[in-house]
Design a protein around this nucleic acid. Structure first.
Lengths: 205, 205
DNA sequence: GCACTTGCTTACCGAACGGTAAGTTACCGA
DNA sequence: TCGGTAACTTACCGTTCGGTAAGCAAGTGC
């Protein structure tokens, strides 16, 4: 580990760069966040960023990959603690829904939007194994064992949508409904999410 | 109406500009789509766009407003045809889910993401009345009459998320799972959506 | 027939973009 | 102590961005 206590030693770690970039890409998107923005966040020159990551595209790729891995790890943790598949899915969705703003959710949501023009990307493959895990988990819920994989994916995607859509809308919802109503919504949302998830899982095809 | 048959008369209507801009903003986002892109799509100069709409921000505002109105009209149509509130909500969600790519859904989803940095925007207020309508409709479903407005909003938002999240992911899903599985998913999705919506609506708080 | 408006055009502008080139400074292993 | 390398820096570069200025052709009103 690098000696950071020495005076004048102010080198950033690779993760420092990725953290800042993740936040900015999540907030403003690929086009909206510039290399200069990332650099400014770390109080270094723009070329410091280009020194570590050869290009903006590369930086974005690494950010995406790290984020997908984070999400998958989050899923793995939950699936090892909770007992039934229903509880596991619910716990995971609640965890994702309550994660801080400017995080994985926002970034991956953007990737879903932005991916179309720029063909296939690295992060896509990380999402795949994550989604496969979700499908498998759904198909171990009582009643869902004989559901087709596409059908299970449809449900998984709907539940992901239910939680993710909300978690990107904080700012807008607050602007629309005001602080008071917004806070009520935040209180009600997890309760309703639990109801929605359970209701859906208990209505197998 | 302008005479368009006269030779050399090639003026674009205001809607021509808005149509092109809507598509591009939906596809690439506010930052990703340039005025030059919009102009190129219509085979006019970039300044033709600026002539009609004073600035990019203004153009985006009008695009957003028109899109929100379109969505609300779609909702109004459905709520006048179908009978029960449950059927109305289901019909609307299915309609939104099956709308063509590059449309309202994509654009509004982007607005939810991009809105945060740029404070409050015009389109926000159009979304409000739309969401209010949804809340009202949910609270006329049997069992939901006594649900709080935030609770009804939570459900409405989850159902919106379930359908919208999917409808922006076409390209990515196809890339991840391949043409075959993707088509199966597209076939299963509406069925599962109906199941999810009904299950949620029939589990009042 | 002539001013006025509409709907563009070409010609620019400064700022910001991603990226290259060439140092500079600090540390580290031999 | 000396060579190499990691982690930057300053100085540029060409392109694209949103936006301004000025002009011009075609209709419109009087």
């Amino acid at each position: 580990m690098a000696d950071r206590s020495t005076q004048n030693r102010k080198t950033r770690t690779r993760d420092d760069f990725l953290d800042a970039a993740t936040l900015l890409f999540a907030e403003r998107g690929y086009y909206g966040a510039s290399l200069a923005d990332v650099a400014a966040e770390l109080a270094v020159s723009k070329q410091a960023v280009l020194h570590r990551f050869a290009s903006k595209e590369r930086l974005y790729g690494e950010v995406l990959q790290r984020t997908a891995e984070h999400l998958e790890r989050q899923f793995d943790e939950v699936t090892q603690v909770e007992d039934s598949a229903e509880e596991q899915l619910l716990a995971f969705l609640l965890a994702v829904g309550s994660s801080e703003p400017g995080s994985s959710t926002r970034l991956l949501m953007r990737e879903l939007l932005d991916n179309a023009p720029r063909a296939e990307r690295a992060g896509t493959w990380y999402l795949k194994s994550f989604l496969e895990g979700l499908i498998e988990r759904v198909r171990t819920v009582p009643g869902w064992e004989k559901a087709s994989r596409p059908r299970a994916l449809a449900l998984a995607y709907q539940l992901l949508g239910a939680v993710n859509y909300h978690s990107i809308s904080h700012a807008t919802l607050k602007a629309i409904f005001g602080e008071r109503t917004y806070r009520s919504l935040e209180r009600e949302f997890p309760k309703q999410l639990e109801a929605t998830v359970r209701a859906a899982l208990r209505s197998p095809p």
